[in-house]
């Protein structure tokens, strides 16, 4: 299988303030994403999970090339796209290939655009479609997403939550992308509607041969949709592997606590470990300590003196924890 998207040790740091003229020290930096490597194969769905502030959104913005990387390379279809500055990527040949579905379509769609305008906008700007061709493509995308054509003239506030979600998806698939980045696409929806949207996403993937990066904090939903899952903590990947395997037999204490914290219809686990406290500061973290150290329920001395490397614990299943050594 050929990788569609490949990230090699990608980092993003945001400096806090500028370097003073004669100052010796660099300004402190927020380490938003640190040395993340991941691969998305054609037709694959990769889930990206972690708490707020773990760098999911920054990573997504790096992949969609809305932000420049500090270090590392991003390959899309064997072409290095991290070399193209973000401000030029809007006119790049691969721009239409990587599209994004944003969280809460009610907030992310321009309120003064009708559904048709919203879907047509990327087609106009990226593919230069006009007139009848544009119209046909808008209707094609709407139909694929199960959005009745009669609703195309409506504004976002005149649509239900489920219909808005469909507009957001139609807008993203209009340009015939190969990779779709979905940022919590169902977070704003009721469960009854969430199911239909999830099924739509699975159907579109099969029909159009798409690959997904699925960002979500709802692990039950990630498990339903994803082939592989990547768990992030404070900017680093702590565990990745086949979704079912990671959920059934997590090998990193953070993943364990995360899964244990998800409410279950079957009732609470009696032995659920609780993760207390907040993550440490992402500003200039100690490079020689596990980022989970201090909050980890099973940490020991070595966690504070050496950063655990991401190691294969089972075929295709990686975890970064000293306990697996």
């Amino acid at each position: 299988m050929t990788p569609l998207l490949e990230l090699d040790a990608v980092s993003k740091r945001f400096p806090l303030g500028r370097r003073r003229l004669f100052a010796k020290a660099l300004p402190p930096e927020v380490h938003a994403v640190s040395e993340v490597s991941l691969t998305v194969h054609a037709g694959e769905t990769v889930g990206l999970v972690g708490e707020s502030g773990c760098g999911k959104s920054t990573l997504v913005r790096l992949i969609t090339r809305l932000l420049d990387t500090t270090e590392g390379t991003i390959w899309f279809d064997r072409r290095e796209i991290s070399g193209v500055p973000a401000r030029f990527f809007a006119r790049d040949t691969n721009r239409a290939d990587i599209q994004m579905v944003f969280q809460d379509a009610g907030e992310s769609i321009n309120p003064r655009f009708t559904a048709a305008d919203a879907i047509a906008d990327p087609l106009r700007k990226l593919l230069g479609l006009r007139g009848a061709a544009l119209q046909a493509r808008v209707e094609e995308a709407a139909t694929q997403c199960g959005l009745p054509l009669a609703l195309l003239g409506r504004y976002p506030h005149q649509l239900s939550g489920g219909q808005r979600a469909r507009v957001g998806i139609a807008r993203a698939i209009g340009t015939h992308p190969r990779l779709l980045v979905l940022d919590e696409p169902t977070a704003a929806l009721d469960v009854s509607v969430q199911v239909t949207v999830l099924k739509l996403l699975q159907q579109l993937k099969a029909e159009l041969g798409l690959s997904y990066i699925f960002v979500s904090h709802d692990l039950n939903v990630v498990r339903l949709l994803c082939d592989r899952v990547v768990v992030m903590y404070l900017g680093r990947v702590v565990e990745s592997g086949p979704a079912q395997q990671v959920f059934d037999a997590p090998r990193h204490p953070y993943t364990k606590s995360l899964i244990a914290a998800v409410p279950r219809l079957e009732g609470a686990r009696p032995e659920a470990p609780r993760l207390v406290g907040d993550p440490r500061s992402p500003i200039d973290p100690d490079p020689n300590a596990c980022r989970f150290h201090g909050r980890c329920p099973v940490g020991f001395d070595r966690c504070g003196t050496a950063m655990p490397a991401l190691r294969e614990v089972a075929p295709g299943h990686l975890a970064a924890c000293h306990l697996n050594d």
Partner: peptide, 30 residues
């Protein structure tokens, strides 16, 4: 309620909620 819902809406709501096991095909919308 979870084992033996009697109102059709409760049953639908339970069937739409993702569980720790189960597949997407088993979930049903309301």
């Amino acid at each position: 309620l979870l084992a033996r819902p009697m109102h059709p809406y409760s049953a639908r709501l339970i069937a739409a909620t993702p569980t720790a096991a189960g597949t997407l095909e088993e979930l049903q919308s309301v």
